[in-house]
């Protein structure tokens, strides 16, 4: 009898947990919905975009180096492919250099990359390299700047806090990356990834990216006024090397109507005015 009662309580407890869980789930979007929306907000808002970027790299000893560039981005309306145009303004030795990327969403297709060296008038085509290498010597990686395909990892909703959905992403091909998994803290209202934590094999945290400032940027979309949540300051810390890089974004514009031809050799050799000022 006692056993039966115990069994009943256990059963009803499990039942109520399931009901509760179900109720929570009704409000919580699925993992796929969260990461898809977060990826969109972080990398794909608007048809195109432009921003001035200032980067400050600070090493363990506190020595700093600065980078300034203007970045143009255009989405392919038919898929998740994108084109990037990066025009360097500082430091002096890289001034007027242009870095261009045609990014392909398909995992089996390498991105196309070009570098224009103005002093030689040389358009160099760069082999699609490891995307987890430093972007212009900073602590940001290529992949942080242009996004990591959602198909590269398996995603799990680890927990939901008052502010965030916490997603754990585990690489499908662990041998291609330096982390074993990473956690993404996604803002529940804007879906902006606000923090990313990268963990090594021994579960130790070694790299953190944080969105320090979020602004609502006004833009026109199909003739209507809209506001895109946009990170205007972000910081990455390499906990092993003690180095950190801060990126601040200004003069942000969306839906400028950038022409596709901007992302060709013509404009590499002579950048469009949108990219230069």
């Amino acid at each position: 009898m006692k056993r039966k009662m115990a069994g009943f309580f256990v059963t009803s407890f499990i039942f109520s947990v399931i009901v509760l869980a179900h109720n929570v789930q009704a409000q919580t979007p699925s993992v796929d919905e969260i990461i898809t929306q977060a990826n969109h907000v972080a990398y794909y808002q608007g048809q195109d975009g432009k921003s001035k970027v200032k980067m400050t790299i600070t090493d363990r000893q506190g020595r700093t180096r600065n980078r300034e560039f203007i970045i143009l981005r255009k989405n392919d309306p038919d898929n998740d492919d994108q084109k990037y145009f990066v025009y360097f303004q500082a430091p002096a030795d890289v001034r007027r250099m242009v870095f261009m990327v045609h990014k392909y969403a398909a995992l089996d297709k390498d991105d196309d990359r070009w570098l224009y060296l103005p002093n030689l008038d040389l358009v160099r085509r760069i082999a699609a390299g490891d995307k987890r290498t430093s972007f212009v010597g900073s602590d940001f990686l290529y992949e942080d700047v242009s996004g990591r395909s959602l198909l590269e990892d398996t995603h799990e909703l680890l927990r939901t806090t008052e502010e965030y959905y916490v997603i754990k992403s585990v690489p499908k091909k662990p041998e291609t990356v330096e982390f074993t998994y990473f956690l993404v803290f996604i803002d529940k209202t804007t879906f902006m990834p606000m923090k990313m934590e990268y963990y090594e094999k021994d579960e130790s945290l070694y790299r953190v990216i944080e969105s320090k400032k979020l602004e609502m940027i006004k833009a026109k979309e199909d003739g209507k006024e809209v506001e895109y949540p946009t990170v205007t300051q972000s910081v990455v810390k390499d906990l092993k090397s003690g180095s950190a890089t801060e990126m601040t974004f200004s003069d942000i514009q969306y839906n400028l109507g950038l022409n596709d031809t901007i992302f060709t050799e013509r404009y590499l050799k002579r950048p469009p005015r949108e990219a230069m000022r």
């Binding site: 082999a127 699609a128 390299g129 490891d130 987890r132 290498t133 430093s134």
Partner: peptide, 10 residues
Amino acid sequence: YTQEIVADLN
């Protein structure tokens, strides 16, 4: 032919 052998080595 040009290729990245490992990160930052071309």
